[in-house]
């Protein structure tokens, strides 16, 4: 208990003694964690937009004349990737046309019989599944023709894939950067107390006893950086979303406070973990070297 009390007191003393470096570390950690949080929010928003666009992507399968629409819908529903289907009868198709072009739709009726074909509207889970689903639809005997936004689907697939890869790289780089910053701060702290550590070990301090204050120092700095980053992120995100919504009202931005709360919690956990690991590594490396006899 006394050792923990000493470690906390000494860890705090280390922070105060090197206050300039501590401030710089907190600021750097805050910046890095802010970048991590901001890039995560960016990725989540892009995913949200992509996913909402994907939801709007439909494949229209036009049926052969006199094909059984119920049987066709049943066959299509059984295909993989198909999320949702909707049967469009001749009357429904005409109704849709009327709603789009108004009274001009009456011209169609001049032909005598409703010439619009029956069709099935199909939704898939992901944009990447559109092309494959279209290929499978060709094999359905009732289907005569297929219409879908092939290029849009391809582009969405590409954007989605890129955003995922970019986000992973971005997160790894940012986490590594924060780890290196904290590692260096603790290393400087440890080296500035090299003589003290030597004396401590000489009078019988265990490695844990020597290491604990430095680990606590790193933990506090990392945690403070992550906490400040979370607060800043939540503040700036809602302000940014409000503005963006005015500028781009057709894009669905994430506004859930639960999500940002979760993200802030994740950032704090990430800050705590990264700071603990990097401080431990820095101090352990030094102690191993210092305790090695000649």
């Amino acid at each position: 208990m006394a050792a923990v009390r000493y470690a906390c007191r000494d860890g705090w003393r280390l922070i105060v003694r090197h206050w300039g470096m501590s401030l710089l570390t907190v600021f750097t950690a805050m910046s890095v964690f802010f970048i991590i949080g901001a890039s995560t929010l960016f990725v989540l928003n892009v995913r949200n937009i992509v996913s909402s666009l994907e939801n709007q992507l439909t494949i229209q399968a036009y049926l052969k004349p006199k094909a059984d629409i119920a049987a066709a819908e049943k066959a299509i529903k059984a295909l993989p990737y198909v999320k949702e289907t909707k049967a469009i009868t001749k009357d429904m198709a005409l109704e849709r046309l009327r709603s789009r072009i108004g009274e001009q739709a009456k011209a169609v009726m001049l032909l005598g019989e409703n010439p619009l074909p029956e069709s099935i509207e199909i939704k898939v889970r992901k944009a990447s599944e559109v092309a494959e689903t279209a290929r499978l639809l060709v094999a359905v005997p009732e289907v005569e023709d297929i219409v879908y936004a092939g290029r849009v689907a391809e582009k969405l697939t590409r954007v989605s894939g890129f955003v995922e890869k970019f986000s992973i790289v971005m997160l790894l780089v940012a986490i590594a950067a924060s780890g290196v910053v904290l590692f260096n701060t603790i290393r400087i702290s440890v080296y500035s107390r090299a003589e003290e550590i030597g004396v401590m070990m000489m009078v019988g301090a265990t490695s844990t006893y020597v290491a604990l204050p430095f680990v606590i120092q790193g933990f506090i700095l990392g945690l403070a950086g992550a906490l400040l980053a979370s607060v800043m992120l939540c503040g700036t995100y809602y302000a940014a979303v409000t503005r963006l919504k005015d500028m781009l009202p057709f894009l669905p931005f994430i506004e859930s406070t639960r999500l940002t709360g979760k993200l802030a919690f994740m950032l704090v956990c990430c800050g705590a973990t990264v700071s603990l690991i990097s401080s431990l590594m820095a101090v352990e490396k030094f102690i191993r070297k210092a305790s090695r006899p000649l």
Binding site: E195, M202, V203, G204, S207
Partner: peptide, 20 residues
Amino acid sequence: NRFDLALFRRDIGVVFQSFL
């Protein structure tokens, strides 16, 4: 070992040449 060495050193007093 490293841990026992720490305990062992607690039973030794050292006055260094340069005080330390």
